[in-house]
Design a protein around this nucleic acid. Structure first.
Length: 925
DNA sequence: TCCGATACGTA
DNA sequence: CGTACGTATCGGAC
């Protein structure tokens, strides 16, 4: 139902637009002779209109996911579509200037001088406009040594001589000289939407002279935009007065001496400028153009090219407008061109076998259909769609033979499959005893690799964005409908549609993946990893529930004590979890010093409160902090307790498509933020234990992987040497920058160095460093200066990263994973600086993610191929947690060390530390 | 019931 | 005015 509503809403404005267009055509119909007999030429000055569009639309609001700005392209294209719609020209062409000098530059070297540099955001947009024009089959022209306006003038005169009507679109006033009873100028008044027609009458009204004398007037007045000074003190009115009196500039020159007054003197003094202006502003009308007017006959756009290009530019609205204008069917009308194939429901073993054989190893999209159960959802069937056929297989109607046939195909490595969210499908099918294999694409992951900072990779969203295909949302929704006792048929159709969409998407993404060098990242890393993750999730980690319960009680008791004490101190009970109520108590009632300002008043976060303790020593604060700690820990414990499954284990869900840097994320529950820093918090890790039948847990983590990557990427010899010598990094660096022997590096020195090293990876400023270390900004700056003096290549690298990213529009990791950062060229300083810090961090954090992902593949592969029972359970960014079977500890440790250390070939060693124990806490080292 | 703001846990 | 995440709670908006 909501589906229908949505469609109506989306379609309504369009159909209104469409009918308006149709009405306009009907209105023009009564005068067919006029439109039929007389050709109408529309010629556009490409650069000048592109610039108008650029300055009319904010660049930061128009960019593709790849960071290419498109405001000028958008504005230009919108304008062009409007012109085609409103003016209905029979012939169209667009002229562009070239970078090469024109005869005007040769004659006057300062011609158009003093113009500011083309803004960064404009780069590349002219090329895109030319592509748009190609797609619209509109010829583009440019002539070496001449300006676009000369081309326009030549065309205008040629067409007018043939008796055509001509419209010249330009933001350059010089074209007014072309106006006559055949030729009008469309001169943008404001932006690119308001483009009034200037005919002879309009020119005369505005400039007081007829169009053929406009250039005389412009010569006298001058043109700042072209750096052509005129006669000081002479504006259009004076100039017009002279021109009308003497019949034009020639007449004025003949009567120079009879022009009196101060301006007359100025005219005589500047007469050479005026003559030069007149020579320069005369447009040439006799160029030898390589194409004739016939070649400019208006054509329908090249539909396929428009679709591809407008997709890439993300011009969905414009694409619609353009297709409306030409009466083209929109491709994204649901169930029309992209209609999924008819499907059959197959349950018979022989028929299934026949169908699988008939696919001939063609790629099939797989969509699992689920039903909600008390504990989650279960697979009830699967929709399979190839290029030529579609079936739905309801599991519950299969006999043992049929089930075997389906199972064989699902696990057939030579039956290539496209899945949207392979990991989810793998887990669902696995619960029914099927193994899903032979995956060649996961459209969610492909979409992520192409655009890693999208918030959603839902099939419906990707289909809408990339295919313009509206999808009847999820199969879960279909399942829900089924629960409402709708006919059973309903589950298959949306699933077939979804599989079809995935198949189309996969095809659509293939080229883009190659283009972005993400092919290997998908096939060699993310796709195999998704299966590894699926098995890790299915395995889960064993939890000592009684331990969690004890912790819950402990933390509850602490909460009770601290809150009671806190309330006693302030003499009343408030909600300690409400920042608002805390603010009232702290800053109004207790009148404590103000802390850092936030949107809703003053901060009550741990930093601020600790600060207040130092300043005031107020006893309430101590209780409040202790209460917060206990409350946070209890909340963590409670969340974990609720996530323990019937098998006594916690099964997190890793999301491969969330973090823009390439990291995994962990959800429901998040096992990547289990406390470790405080003693109390660390107790929670004691509750993660080795499961029955296994000997111990093993943790293996990379030490200082990000700094090692920094050393590698920067090639800094000092840093590389530090790691090669395998000494305490921070001590080594400290000894370098403080000029003392390593053994004389104090704890304070070491912690400063450590903070700075890590801060650098995040784009830390001296201000931030000073705040964190509670030192002065000067001291922080000196510290950073000393650091960079000693490790200069690090500074060069960090600078280079941002520069390169600004140029490319993206950063890259060692495996070629890209992150697009369009905000690097934002006018908004805050946005731009945020993007700069992200650019510093992304290659490092992302490379670390690449490395541990590769290591996971290696570890999993080794464990399995050696037939070991031990298994990976968790990944925490730079750490792996494994469950080790009896007798396998040594071999597993060797594997883990080898695979983790060998996951990348850096100029520094990858150091791995390993520990074992019966709990996660104990296994930590 | 939803959502922004705040706070805080991890690497 | 340090990157990348997920989750819980509060309290205002709906």
């Amino acid at each position: 139902m909501s589906q229908t509503n949505q469609t109506v809403q989306i379609d309504d404005p369009t159909s209104a637009q469409g009918s308006a267009g149709a009405a306009a055509e009907t209105a023009a119909a009564p005068a067919p002779l006029d439109t039929l007999e007389r050709s109408r030429l529309l010629v556009v000055d490409g650069h000048s209109m592109a610039f108008r569009a650029f300055y009319a639309l904010p660049a930061e609001n128009f960019s593709t996911d790849t960071g290419q700005h498109t405001n000028a392209v958008y504005g230009f294209t919108a304008m062009l579509i409007n012109l085609l719609r409103d003016q209905k020209p029979t012939h169209v062409a667009v002229a562009f200037d070239l970078d090469t000098p024109t005869f005007r530059d040769t004659e006057y070297s300062e011609y158009k001088g003093g113009r500011s540099r083309t803004p960064e955001e404009f780069h590349g947009q002219i090329d895109l406009i030319i592509k748009v024009l190609e797609a619209m089959r509109i010829p583009t022209l440019s002539m070496e040594g001449f300006e676009a306006d000369d081309v326009l003038a030549t065309l205008a005169v040629d067409a007018a001589n043939r008796g055509w009507d001509v419209q010249v679109v330009s933001g350059d006033r010089d074209v007014f000289q072309l106006v006559n009873d055949r030729v009008t100028v469309l001169y943008p008044k404001q932006g690119v939407t308001n483009i009034p027609q200037m005919d002879a009458k309009a020119v005369e009204e505005k400039y007081f002279v007829p169009p053929h004398l406009y250039s005389d007037l412009a010569a006298l007045v001058g043109e700042t935009a072209d750096n052509l000074p005129g006669v000081p003190g002479v504006g259009p009115k004076t100039a017009a007065k002279w021109i009308l009196k003497y019949g034009g500039l020639d007449g004025i020159l003949e009567n120079l001496d009879s022009i009196g007054g101060k301006v007359g003197g100025a005219l005589r003094e500047n007469i050479e400028n005026v003559k030069r202006n007149r020579r320069l502003n005369r447009l040439l009308t006799d160029l030898e153009l390589p194409v004739n007017l016939e070649a400019m006959a208006a054509q329908r756009p090249d539909r396929d090219t428009v679709e591809d290009l407008f997709d890439a530019l993300q011009f969905n609205v414009l694409r619609k407008r353009l297709f409306d204008l030409f009466g083209e069917e929109e491709p994204d009308v649901p169930g029309q061109e992209m209609a999924p194939p008819e499907h059959q429901v197959l349950t018979d073993a022989a028929e299934l076998k026949g169908w699988f054989n008939g696919t001939n190893q063609a790629t099939a999209a797989v969509q699992v259909v689920t039903r909600a159960t008390s504990g989650g959802e279960e697979a009830v069937g699967v929709a399979l769609v190839t290029d030529t056929a579609a079936i739905y297989v309801p599991f519950e109607e299969l006999d043992a033979d049929a089930e075997r046939v389906v199972g064989d195909w699902l696990q057939d490595l030579h039956a290539p499959k496209v899945v949207h969210d392979f990991k989810a499908a793998y887990k669902l099918l696995s619960a029914r005893g099927f193994t899903l294999a032979g995956e060649v694409d996961d459209t969610a992951i492909s979409g992520y690799l192409i655009q890693p900072d999208r918030r959603s990779y839902e099939l419906a969203d990707l289909s809408q964005v990339h295919l313009k295909l509206t999808l009847a949302t999820s199969t879960a929704a279909a399942g829900g409908q089924q629960a409402l006792a709708l006919e059973e048929e309903d589950v298959a159709t949306p699933a077939v549609a979804a599989a079809f969409a995935a198949l189309e998407l996969s095809r659509h993404f293939a080229g883009q993946l190659v283009e972005r060098g993400a092919n290997q990242l998908l096939a060699g890393l993310e796709l195999p990893l998704s299966e590894v993750l699926a098995r890790m999730e299915l395995t889960g980690i064993s939890v000592a529930v009684d331990g969690l319960d004890r912790l819950y009680d402990d933390f509850s008791a602490t909460m009770a004590n601290t809150s009671a004490e806190a309330f006693r101190i302030i003499g009343k009970e408030i909600n300690l979890g409400s920042p608002k109520q805390l603010q009232a108590v702290l800053f109004d009632e207790l009148a404590l010093p103000k802390t850092k300002k936030i949107k809703t008043g003053y901060s009550t976060d741990a930093d601020a409160l600790t600060d207040l303790i130092v300043k005031t020593g107020h006893p309430f604060l101590e209780q409040l902090l202790a209460h917060r700690d206990a409350s946070k820990l209890r909340q963590t414990v409670e969340g974990l307790r609720k996530s323990v499954a019937d098998d006594g284990r916690i099964h997190t869900t890793y999301v491969q498509t969330i973090a823009a840097t390439g990291r995994l994320s962990s959800m429901n529950p998040n096992l990547q933020n289990i406390p470790i820093r405080s003693d109390e918090g660390r107790r929670i890790r004691e509750a993660f234990v080795v499961g029955p039948g296994y000997e111990c847990l093993m943790t293996a983590d990379y030490s200082q992987i990000e700094m090692r990557i920094m050393a590698h990427l920067s090639g800094d010899e000092g840093l590389i040497q530090a790691f090669r010598e395998g000494e305490d990094l921070h001590r080594f660096v400290g000894s370098s920058i403080f000029h003392v022997a390593p053994e004389d590096v104090t704890t304070a020195m070491r912690s400063k160095v450590k903070a700075m090293s890590y801060g650098l990876v995040y784009g830390l400023s001296s201000f931030g460093l000073s705040k964190q270390l509670a030192i002065s900004v000067d001291e922080a700056r000196t510290l950073m200066g000393d650091y960079f003096d000693r490790f200069g290549a690090v500074r060069d690298y960090l600078r280079g990263i941002v520069e390169q990213a600004r140029k490319d529009g993206f950063t890259s990791t060692i495996e070629g994973r890209r992150r697009y950062l369009p905000d690097l060229s934002s006018d908004n300083r805050q946005l731009r600086e945020m993007a700069e810090r992200a650019a510093l961090n992304a290659p490092i954090q992302g490379s670390a993610a690449d490395i541990i992902k590769k290591a996971m593949l290696g570890v999993d592969d080794q464990l399995r191929s050696r037939g070991l029972v031990s298994r990976m359970l968790l990944q925490v960014h730079d750490e792996l947690v494994l469950e080790v079977a009896p007798g396998e500890r040594e071999e597993v440790e060797r594997i883990v060390r080898t695979e983790m250390a060998g996951a990348a070939d850096l100029s520094v060693p990858l150091d791995v530390s390993v520990g074992t124990g019966t709990s996660w806490h104990e296994a930590a080292h």
